[in-house]
């Protein structure tokens, strides 16, 4: 993550676009925030480090401007998927790719430092050094990286007009990409049910997961809220919370680019990205399809084959 290189690119790109979306200093060292650069004197405020986690491509569908956007590997897939589905126009985005060694999970860092307020943080190649009022802690990046990064297959953006840094190879082989999901699947039905009920019980239906998701494009018309059609009530009960998460997961089938925003955005720490990753695993197995790889693909749920090689007729038992 080369900030000088990035600034240089932004400087050359800025005159040809209305806005550049990047990151700037935020709440604390663990929480940089998205920033919208429109004039050259704002460029110096840009930052780039493993705490820059937001998927900035999420802003693209609602911005009706020519936009340059800073994206890491997984987020470049979001841009591809958005273009593929016709939700944004390729000619309206300039993609500034950032090869990525993994980003932090602020939640994991805070757990590791006992939730002390962070005063400062320094980033090294494979570690982060976090200073609180009481102590300084060195944490291996691998231990506090976002879950999505631990199995990431595309650390280098799959699409970019400019690349800020050297290509990075995936550290995980393809076989292991879904190992976490397979492990989860190895549990009994009752265990899985209990797990999700306990997690969903905490959900406050704030929809941060949905609004942060770049591929949740219904926005104002989300059926979790509309009265017409009337899919669900506003009760804060488990069946309704569960239903909401099924809506998010199933509407993302074959479209989720595994950016992990839904999970990161959740203030209650509910691992909702897992649901979508499971569906992605099945999509890959059934249709050999991965979302956000090629602009010319078609999402598997939008198409079909007369003979489906992998779908067999089910027997009732």
């Amino acid at each position: 993550m080369n900030i000088e290189k990035l600034k240089e690119i932004v400087r050359t790109v800025l005159p040809s676009v209305d806005v550049v979306i990047g990151y700037k200093k935020g709440l604390d060292a663990l929480h940089p925030v998205p920033c919208f650069v429109t004039s050259p004197d704002e460029i110096d405020a840009l930052v780039l480090n493993p705490a820059c986690t937001h998927n900035l491509a999420a802003y693209l569908p609602s911005l009706k401007k020519k936009t340059a956007v800073v994206v890491k590997g997984c987020e470049s897939r979001t841009v591809v998927q958005l273009v593929q589905e016709g939700l944004i126009k390729r000619e309206n985005v300039v993609v500034i790719g950032v090869p990525c060694q993994g980003v932090l999970s602020a939640r994991k860092v805070l757990n590791a430092i006992n939730h002390q307020p962070v005063v400062e943080a320094a980033f090294e190649n494979d570690a982060v050094i976090v200073k609180t009022r009481k102590a300084e802690t060195r944490l291996a990046l691998n231990d506090v990286a976002s879950d999505k990064c631990l199995t990431c297959q595309y650390p280098t953006p799959v699409l970019s007009d400019h690349l800020a840094g050297e290509q990075v190879e995936s550290k995980v082989d393809e076989q292991a990409a879904y190992q976490d999901i397979r492990q989860f699947d190895a549990q009994s039905l009752e265990e899985r049910r209990a797990y999700w009920l306990k997690e969903f019980d905490r959900c406050i239906r704030c929809y941060a997961c949905r609004n942060a998701c770049p591929m949740c494009v219904c926005r104002e018309s989300c059926i979790a809220e509309t009265r017409d059609p009337h899919w669900m009530s506003q009760k804060a009960t488990l069946n309704e919370k569960m239903m909401f998460h099924m809506i998010h997961a199933i509407h993302l089938a074959g479209r989720c680019t595994e950016c992990g925003e839904c999970e990161r955005a959740c203030p209650m720490g509910i691992p909702v990205a897992k649901l979508k990753k499971k569906i992605n695993m099945e999509m890959k197995e059934l249709f050999g399809y991965e979302p956000g790889i090629s602009i010319d693909d078609k999402p598997p749920m939008y198409t079909f084959k007369v003979e489906e090689e992998k779908i067999e007729e089910h027997k009732i038992r």
Binding site: L189, R192, A194, I250, G254, E282, M301, K305, I311
Partner: peptide
Amino acid sequence: YYARRRLEMLKRFLPFVGI
């Protein structure tokens, strides 16, 4: 044909949430 894809996806997804 569309139904087959969607319903197959669902059939494989349901057990993940304990159904």
